[in-house]
Design a protein around this nucleic acid. Structure first.
Length: 577
RNA sequence: CGGGAUGUGGCGCAGCUGGUAGCGCACCUGCAUGGGGUGCAGGGGGUCGCACGUUCAAAUCGUGUCAUCCCGACCA
């Protein structure tokens, strides 16, 4: 492809709407353009690269025995009423009517359609097991699309669905898919980890999320540096630890301390010169059963996920400032666990119960209370683990240290069992001629998100830097002096030869200054550059520049140049370069 | 949906104590140049997001609205 005839609208400056490096680069390199919030066009260069990613995924899915199909993006709402998920999905499900006034929606996912399809077209156990997959659009009307393709409303996903006759079959299908995922993400060069997860909206008995550590990830996990224990931060547990209570605090009754205008734990801690782990913070929440109070140590955060479960509530929101004032008798920042009005439950963390004397708010403006003792000065209704694991906590399994890391969820695999097949009455006849429901699994990869995550990882200050397996082109031939007859002839020949040998080659034949072309080729993520200029003619040496290492190699003849390029074009990620 | 910010040529921005719009880049023409966003000369392009209002006069002030982005509650 000649650059001059292709369409690569690159940008010199960072677009202001992007904050992630990968998002900025995709816009600057002319990979994507936003049409509306969370809705993107894939421009030729980005599309080309995206297709390579899809094909890599496709290869591994096919290897695992999955069969590709394509399902409708527009779906009748009736199907969603059958499964009951039209309600569960709420506003994320974009609904509309056709001209006959029938209800439709844009597919946020495909369990309903595939279950319906399988139910109507599979009769016998002899046709099982079967795993079907597709790679295409989904639409979720996200409340807050952001970070480019990371959280878009319209996005590309690979989803696979397995159908088995029994649980053992499902386990085997699941294992195969997990293996395929492992292959895919290894080939892409990701450092990833599977985490057990809540199944959420999709439901089912067991599920794992495929996570990639990234500073920009929206989720957090805790990983043990010793035994490999890993968990989403929501459900991670750690061993509590209990610093010796301050001697000054071992008093027979509570003591009021003046803390003028010091509201936050940090402020009070600095003012009193006492570490935040000696504080217990009292947080008031509003729930459907009324107000509740929760306490964790001052240097900890409450885990609202755990708290919800313990309190057996669905709604859990921080109480409004004026409610806090009514309940505690003081403005926010001075709450303590005693003499609270209108509180249905007091739930305290194990760490609070395990130690004797705490510093808390005094329920009075500008005062805190020392020597607050659980059981004496207040009584908890429930003592439980409601704290969020933090970096450096002790592993519950092995006494190693837990690291808290940001991660991006790129894949999610589920054992659905009969969740959909039973409600949608989708099944087959077994060996005894008896009707049974399919035992199903479902397996997703956020393709767009994976694509952007790759760019997040494979980029530097000069731009995108993708491995050959997914870069839009394998190699570019850059003619630095396109007006020079000799240079032009050599560049033309190299381009034609490489094209003939089946390589995906971009020929930068534009009549622009050398700097612009070199910068552009770096920006748009071409891993190999063959640079042809006056020097090539003069010195009679051919130059190959490797984007990743920045190294330059020189060749005396075209044949050895071509061989080197061909060899490098087979290196899937950059490990060997 | 709550809180915050921003909307001015294609992109990034200035102008915002009201007086009829400017800079850099990009673009077009010509000449030179051509090994890391090259130089000189000339040129085109904007009803200042939209609506209503205040005013002799609005990019500038007020109200409303829409869009985009950030922070929070959901998810691949």
């Amino acid at each position: 492809m000649r650059y001059s005839q292709f369409f690569i609208p690159s940008l010199k400056e960072d677009p202001k709407e992007a904050v992630l490096q990968s998002h900025k680069l995709m816009l600057r390199a002319g990979y994507i353009r936003q049409l509306s919030g969370g809705i993107y066009a894939y421009l030729p260069l980005g599309y080309k690269s995206l297709k390579k990613l899809e094909n890599l995924i496709r290869e591994e899915m096919n290897n695992a025995g999955a069969i590709e199909l394509s399902m409708p993006f527009v779906q009748p709402l009736d199907l969603w009423k059958q499964s009951g998920r039209d309600k569960d999905y709420g506003k994320e499900l974009l609904r509309f009517k056709d001209r006959q006034d029938r209800d439709f929606c844009l597919a946020p996912t495909y369990e309903e359609v595939i279950t319906d399809l399988a139910g109507k077209n599979i009769q016998s156990y002899k046709e099982l097991p079967l795993t079907l997959y597709q790679i295409h659009l989904k639409f979720r009307d996200e409340m807050r699309p952001r970070y480019g393709l990371m959280r878009a409303k319209e996005f590309i996903m690979k989803d696979a669905y397995s159908f088995d006759a029994d649980i053992e079959g499902l386990d085997e299908s699941y294992r195969k898919m997990k293996k395929a995922y492992t292959n895919i993400f290894k080939r892409l060069g990701f450092d990833f980890i599977f985490i057990k997860a809540d199944s959420g909206e999709i439901g089912g008995s067991y599920s794992e999320e495929l996570m990639v550590v990234s500073e920009y990830g929206e989720d957090k996990i805790a990983i043990c540096n010793n035994c490999g224990y890993s968990s989403s931060l929501e459900s991670a547990v750690s061993v509590g630890y209990f610093p010796e209570p301050l001697k000054a605090c071992r008093q027979p009754r509570m003591t009021k301390l003046a803390t003028p205008d010091k509201k936050t734990i940090t402020e009070v801690s600095e003012y009193l010169k006492i570490g935040s782990e000696s504080f217990a913070k009292t947080i008031i929440y509003e729930t459907e059963i009324g107000f509740i109070a929760a306490m964790v140590r001052g240097d900890r955060e409450i885990n609202e996920h755990k708290l919800k479960k313990i309190a057996e509530v669905k709604e859990l929101n921080l109480a409004k400032e004026q409610d806090v004032e009514e309940i505690t008798g003081a403005p926010c920042g001075f709450a303590g666990p005693f003499s609270l009005k209108n509180i249905k439950l007091i739930i305290i963390d194990e760490e609070i119960q395990a130690q004797e004397y705490w510093l808390t708010g005094a329920n009075e403006k500008d005062f805190h209370m020392a020597n607050v003792k659980p059981g004496r000065d207040f009584t908890a209704d429930i003592v439980a683990d409601i704290r969020t694991v933090k970096d450096g906590d002790i592993c519950i399994r092995c006494a190693g240290r837990l690291n808290v890391r940001n991660v991006i969820e790129l894949g999610h695999i589920f054992k659905l069992e009969e969740k959909y097949s039973s409600v949608m009455d989708a099944g087959f006849l077994d060996e005894n001629g008896k009707k049974k429901n399919f035992v199903m699994g479902c397996y997703g990869i956020g393709v767009g998100r994976t694509f952007q995550a790759l760019i997040e990882i494979f980029s530097d200050e000069n731009g995108i830097n993708l491995p050959v397996s997914i870069s839009p082109f394998t190699v570019s031939v850059i003619s630095l002096n396109p007006n020079d007859e000799n240079v032009k002839n050599i560049a033309d020949k190299i381009y034609e030869d490489l094209l003939d040998s089946g390589l995906d080659v971009l020929y930068d034949d534009r009549k622009l200054s050398a700097g612009v072309k070199l910068k552009d080729n770096d920006l748009i993520g071409i891993p190999l550059k063959i640079i042809v200029g006056n020097k090539t003619v003069k010195e009679n040496k051919y130059e190959l520049a490797i984007r990743k290492s920045g190294k330059k190699e020189f060749f005396d003849d075209l044949e050895s140049l071509y061989n080197r390029v061909k060899k490098l074009s087979l290196v899937e990620n950059f490990i060997d370069i």
